[in-house]
């Protein structure tokens, strides 16, 4: 009998039994990144997305270093039309618009990143905890989430901006993040509720594995594509929110950034009525659209990156 069972599903005879290759964490990680690369290459659009996002990242990190602290003004060329010297023309002071976009990227992107990290971290933590513990914790946390969702963001920011200058993008990110985690918490909670009924979570509990293991190693990876997608989308959301706030002039503008550019172009330059300030308006808009496009193109790959079945072909 014992021989019979062993003969049932003898696996690949070529790999000798017992000769286990060292499946270390390092190899797994290497395989993961190789898989990510494979997934990204699968569609050209994804590579385009990667290039765009990488470009913005470089802009955010190195942009301000490329230009002097105070951008040169050219009083002879106010609202200059696009030319070789100024691909997007100049602004009301004769400063190169491209330079403004590039140096303004850091504030915008840092805010976006900070917001995304905070929303996702808070949302995931609260959603996971509520869904996993259920019962009283769930009730309390979900009420808190409801309150979060009900907070009117714009009026609150209006009030805040009277006392707070938001000089650092991280401060801005913190506020936007604290305002925006509700949706993700809700979604993560419902995912957790359905996942915790799955066989493998139940099995882990039956084996007596610690809760940290169950949440960190079993639940979280299953939700990774979902969380990563939300994170990317949160970046664009934060960029829009923040640019919008500056554009409306809700926030005092101390520094140069895309929202400020839009505001000045429309309200000072009259870009909507005269053609002269049009490039000044279009440049930051284009930057925002391009960033969104890049992110959307990458989001498409998240499912495949985190699902081994899709990743390994």
């Amino acid at each position: 009998m014992s021989i019979m069972t062993n003969a049932q599903e003898t696996t690949d005879p070529r790999s000798a039994p017992g000769g286990t290759p060292g499946v270390t964490r390092a190899t797994l990680r290497r395989n993961f990144w190789r898989g990510v690369w494979r997934v990204l290459r699968r569609k050209p659009s994804r590579m385009v997305g990667v290039v765009i996002v990488a470009g913005f990242a470089v802009m955010g990190v190195a942009g301000p270093l490329l230009y002097p602290d105070h951008l040169p003004r050219d009083d002879d060329a106010l609202y200059a039309p696009p030319s070789l010297r100024h691909p997007f023309g100049t602004d009301f002071e004769g400063t190169d618009v491209l330079a403004l976009v590039i140096t303004g990227a850091r504030y915008v992107l840092l805010t976006g990143l900070a917001t995304a990290v905070i929303t996702v971290a808070l949302g995931t933590l609260i959603g996971l905890f509520a869904g996993f513990r259920r019962g009283r914790w769930d009730t309390v946390l979900m009420r808190v989430t409801d309150v979060n969702l009900a907070i009117p963001g714009l009026p609150l920011l209006l009030v805040l901006s009277t006392v707070w200058k938001f000089e650092s993008p991280l401060e801005m990110g913190l506020v936007l993040g604290l305002l925006g985690w509700g949706g993700i918490a809700r979604a993560v909670r419902s995912q957790t509720l359905s996942l915790r009924e799955r066989g493998f979570i139940e099995a882990a509990r039956g084996l007596g594995l610690p809760t940290t293991h169950i949440i960190g190693r079993e639940l979280l990876p299953s939700m990774a594509p979902y969380i990563a997608m939300n994170m990317l989308i949160a970046v664009t959301g934060a960029v829009y929110a923040q640019v919008g706030l500056f554009f409306l002039g809700v926030l005092p503008f101390e520094s140069n950034n895309w929202g400020v550019m839009l505001n000045l172009a429309v309200f000072n330059g009259g870009a909507l009525t005269t053609a002269a300030a049009l490039p000044y308006l279009m440049a930051p808009l284009l930057a925002i659209l391009l960033l969104t496009l890049g992110i959307v193109l990458i989001v498409d790959a998240m499912d495949e990156i985190f699902n081994p079945r899709l990743r390994e072909e």
């Binding site: 003898t10 690949d12 790999s15 017992g18 290759p21 081994p308 390994e312």
Partner: peptide
């Protein structure tokens, strides 16, 4: 009754139901 060398590095979807 399964070969560890074959199974250990694999993901569940790469194995048959049995």
């Amino acid at each position: 009754g399964i070969d560890p060398g074959y199974v250990l590095p694999r993901y569940p979807h790469q194995l048959s139901g049995g």
